[in-house]
């Protein structure tokens, strides 16, 4: 087994989570890489939707560097604008939202707007919702990619940008007027999380080989549900790494990024 990086583990795990014959609404970077990997391996009939307006493109010019990249429109089946992409999603054509964020809470709500809770004068201003808030509301299932750190897996967000299960009450999403069934998976390089059907709380599903559930809990500021049957995360094979490194992100735009502390 070859060595792999945290980003490669996230992309590979993201790929594993996606099922064939589905449509994934992708965000820039690792979600695109994960979806491309899935298409090349276990999900040849998985298609992507990009919020600038393209559905099911053939990415023969290489990986789009952003969701608005003109390359993401290449040989699409359907190419409109943002209204077209998001209205297909409201209608029920997008199965997975694939998003990221700065903070997540135990109910899968995500912040990507501000850090520091004063909206009118925040400590840090992030770019904002972009498509994420709409994707989390209206794709059928939400998959989030997060860095596993205590300051990111928090008890309370500074700002709810992308709706998860809210306060965990069973009718929270219905009262909010949104359509999708909500948070499905949270992917990090050391653990894969899901959500408990009854309490809507985040639940540990898999840990990286060599890690214990307690070590994961120590990196999370709220109490995780830790079932007795936590599995080990599958690791990328040499062939998976070849696809990620040499075929999908051959220039290393995302996988070779240096993590800033």
């Amino acid at each position: 087994m070859s060595e792999y990086t945290p980003f490669e583990m996230i992309a590979y795990t993201g790929s594993r989570v996606l099922e064939d014959e589905r449509i994934v609404f992708v965000g820039t970077g690792l979600p695109i890489i994960a979806a491309m990997h899935a298409q090349l391996t276990h999900a040849p009939n998985l298609y992507m939707i990009y919020e600038a307006g393209s559905l099911a493109p053939i990415l023969e010019m290489g990986m789009p560097l952003s969701v608005g990249d003109t390359r993401a429109a290449r040989k699409a089946c359907y190419l409109k604008g943002l209204c077209g992409a998001f209205e297909l999603t409201q209608r029920g054509c997008a199965d997975y939202a694939f998003i990221g964020g700065a903070q997540v809470d135990m109910y899968g709500n995500i912040c990507s707007t501000i850090e520091g809770n004063n909206y009118d004068k925040p400590g840090i201003r992030f770019p904002g919702s972009g498509g994420a808030g709409a994707m989390a509301a209206n794709c059928e299932k939400t998959i989030a990619i997060m860095a596993l750190e205590k300051r990111r897996f928090v008890k309370k967000l500074d700002f709810v940008t992308s709706i998860g299960f809210g306060d965990g009450s069973p009718d929270y999403r219905e009262k909010a007027g949104v359509l999708g069934s909500g948070p499905y998976r949270v992917i990090t390089n050391q653990a894969l999380f899901g959500f408990d059907e009854e309490t809507k709380r985040m639940m540990l599903l898999e840990v990286k080989p060599g890690r214990t559930p307690q070590e994961i809990q120590d990196l999370v500021d709220f109490d995780l549900i830790i079932p007795p049957d936590v599995k080990e995360m599958a690791e990328p094979t040499d062939e998976d790494l070849r696809l990620l490194r040499d075929v999908i992100d051959a220039e290393g735009y995302f996988l070779k990024r240096v993590i800033k502390k």
């Binding site: 709500n109 909206y119 009118d120 309370k156 500074d158 700002f159 306060d167």
Partner: peptide
């Protein structure tokens, strides 16, 4: 009202 209350620590005018 939706149920958005007290989910975050947000303060706003």
């Amino acid at each position: 009202s939706s149920k958005i209350k007290n989910i975050s620590t947000l303060q706003y005018k």
